[in-house]
């Protein structure tokens, strides 16, 4: 007996706020529960312990937010994607929001294979400790003085980060030491930095816009901060895009507002 044709949909979702502290596995479990709640006719794996057939793109690190997460769902019968984002969002906890759902053509590459790079907003903090919350009894005067200090510190940090970014972009190679399973390796990660710019100060630090490769030579946001220098720490991080390359043109797996594949072309990255 030949297996029935596969019916797939691809979903795009965001992760914002407190819920950014859950893990990739947690996200998968919450998606499975939401899919069951709204009664999507999901396909299950064969075998002794059938599992719902869903597949994610690249895992999102605990504590990172994202505008661009993707999920492929295998179905046993076709569904109308109209209204599906809203239904899924209602079935998910606050902070997980589904922006789009589209049917997927047979033979589409898996998300894991298709993604070539990601865009990130990375907050860089100075190495000093985070400023303590002002105590209740601090007078307006001293609070003002503290505020002025913080502003000065951040202005200095902007300069330092801008210098570090310029140095990284100018470097012919950037050796990075990594430890994995007790083995230390060194790799030149300069080719993984596809784009990098300072976008301005945040409340506690400086924000970068970075495009980092996820194939061949890869670099994670935390590693990028290390490459910039020991005096920096990673603050808030948000993934803004995941990119695929189709016929040499980079585009997103699903455009945030697309309900069908033609609209998706509008999501091409203008670079």
């Amino acid at each position: 007996m030949s297996p029935p044709p596969k019916i797939k949909i691809r979903v795009r979702f965001r992760r914002d706020g407190k819920i950014r502290f859950i893990s990739h596995r947690d996200t998968a479990r919450l998606m499975e529960r939401a899919i069951r709640k709204i009664g999507l006719p999901i396909a299950y794996s064969e075998g002794f312990s059938p599992r719902p057939r869903i597949a994610f793109g690249l895992a999102l690190t605990v504590a990172y937010e994202s505008d661009a997460e993707f999920l492929d769902i295998d179905l046993v019968t076709p569904v109308d994607c109209e209204g599906l984002p809203e239904r899924l969002t209602d079935a998910l906890p606050d902070g997980l929001t589904v922006d789009a759902a589209v049917p997927l053509e047979n033979g589409s590459e898996s998300l894991q294979q298709a993604i070539v790079s990601c865009s990130w907003l990375v907050e860089v903090l100075g190495s000093h400790r985070a400023p303590a919350e002002p105590a209740d009894d601090v007078t307006t005067d001293t609070a003002g003085a503290l505020g002025a200090n913080v502003d000065e510190d951040i202005a200095a940090l902007v300069v330092a980060v801008e210098e570090a970014v310029a140095a990284v972009l100018a470097a012919p190679e950037l050796p990075l030491e990594r430890e994995r399973k007790g083995k230390v390796t060194v790799a030149d990660v300069r080719p993984a930095i596809l784009d990098l710019e300072v976008t301005g100060p945040t409340e506690h630090g400086v924000q970068l816009n970075a495009v980092l490769a996820t194939e061949t030579v890869t670099l994670r946001p935390a590693e990028l901060v290390r490459v910039l220098g020991d005096e920096f720490r990673e603050g808030r991080v948000r993934r803004t895009h995941q990119w695929t390359r189709v016929d040499g043109i980079e585009q997103e797996p699903v455009n945030p507002s697309s309900a069908n594949r033609s609209a998706e072309l509008a999501g091409m990255r203008d670079s």
Binding site: K18, F21, S23, D26, V62, A63, A132, E133
Partner: peptide
Amino acid sequence: WPRLEPHLARVQKPARYIGCEE
């Protein structure tokens, strides 16, 4: 929360501390 949040990225399983259960 404002004092706790900046530290959560560096502890194990920070989802233990955020509530938000359905």
